[in-house]
């Protein structure tokens, strides 16, 4: 009798002890707001490969963005060092607010000057919260390349192209993110009567993380009503993104040497294969500069 009541006593004390220990964290759990947290970014970089991702930078952050494409001409032998042709796009992109980014850039090979506004309308939340990240993208580009054909109307307004995109991304888990991008491109320069001025496309991009800082990416744009007067191909890219703190590097293989939306979506002249000049090696470097110390109010 005595023995059993003693063990019962110990049992009760143990039980109460266990409740005390577990209780405190559970009490804190109950105190903390139960709302779903924002999901971490789906892509980290503002571009998946050549196209924009849903990502925007926090306020007062400047991205110095340099993109390069290298490719060879079909000639059997050339005197060029490393690659026969290269194109560079240098751009500055500044985050006006946590949602809105303005960027402007220039490309060497095709003489495109471009500017864009990017607005993140909604951000994905964890759990059963809001499921997707939604970003609106509007770009305008000016084609400064010389046109030999006198019959082509090339006033300032003719040389402008516009691209509107609705970027929708979802981070499915830590490693895998997917983006869809319904796109409308409006352009008029050098088109024949048979060509559409409004071109519709759907972009798809994926990221799969290979490690904490390295990810594999792929991007593809399906063009629904391509140009009729010349043969164009859908742009595709396979690449590796590497995050190094303030520096982010992207390496890719692609069939398009264009780097501005309206150009690579509607004008890519090559298919994706390993014959010159179809295969392009692409290299993007983004350097991130912070103008605001978030710890100082």
């Amino acid at each position: 009798m005595k023995k059993s009541s003693c063990s019962l006593l110990i049992l009760v004390l143990l039980w109460s002890n266990g409740v005390f220990g577990q209780d405190l964290l559970n009490l804190l759990e109950a105190e903390q707001k139960d709302e779903n947290q924002y999901a971490p970014s789906a892509f980290m970089m503002t571009r998946i490969a050549f196209g924009h991702s849903t990502e925007v930078r926090p306020q007062n952050v400047l991205d110095v963005f340099v993109a390069n494409r290298f490719w060879n001409t079909p000639e059997e032998s050339t005197q060029s060092f490393v690659a026969d042709r290269m194109s560079s796009r240098i751009a500055l992109e500044y985050a006006i607010s946590d949602r809105l980014t303005f960027g402007a850039g220039a490309t060497t090979f095709d003489g495109l000057f471009d500017a864009h506004l990017k607005y993140r309308a909604a951000l994905q939340r964890n759990g059963d919260g809001w499921p997707i990240t939604l970003t609106l993208f509007q770009n305008m580009s000016y084609d400064s390349s010389p046109i030999a054909d006198q019959s082509v109307s090339d006033d300032f307004s003719d040389r402008l192209s516009f691209t509107s995109q609705i970027l929708v991304s979802k981070r499915f888990n830590k490693n895998f993110s997917l983006q869809l991008a319904p796109t409308l491109v409006n352009r008029s320069l050098g088109l024949s009567a048979a060509d559409p001025t409004s071109i519709f496309a759907l972009g798809a991009g994926v990221r799969y993380k290979l490690g904490p800082h390295v990810s594999f990416v792929s991007e593809y744009y399906q063009v629904f009503n391509p140009l009729e007067s010349r043969t164009t191909f859908d742009p595709i890219a396979f690449g590796v993104n590497w995050e190094l703190g303030d520096l982010m590097l992207q390496f890719m293989l692609t069939n398009s040497w264009f780097m501005v939306e309206d150009a690579f979506i509607t004008r890519t002249p090559n298919n994706f294969n390993f014959r010159n000049p179809n295969l392009n090696f692409g290299f993007n470097a983004t350097y991130v500069i912070h103008f605001k110390n978030k710890l100082k109010k």
Partner: peptide, 21 residues
């Protein structure tokens, strides 16, 4: 007994991007 609980994504850094990293 004492218990402490903190959300990791509530840490604010000097550089906004550090928080993401």
């Amino acid at each position: 007994k004492i218990a402490v609980s903190m959300l990791m994504n509530a840490f604010v850094f000097e550089k906004a991007l550090m928080r993401e990293h």
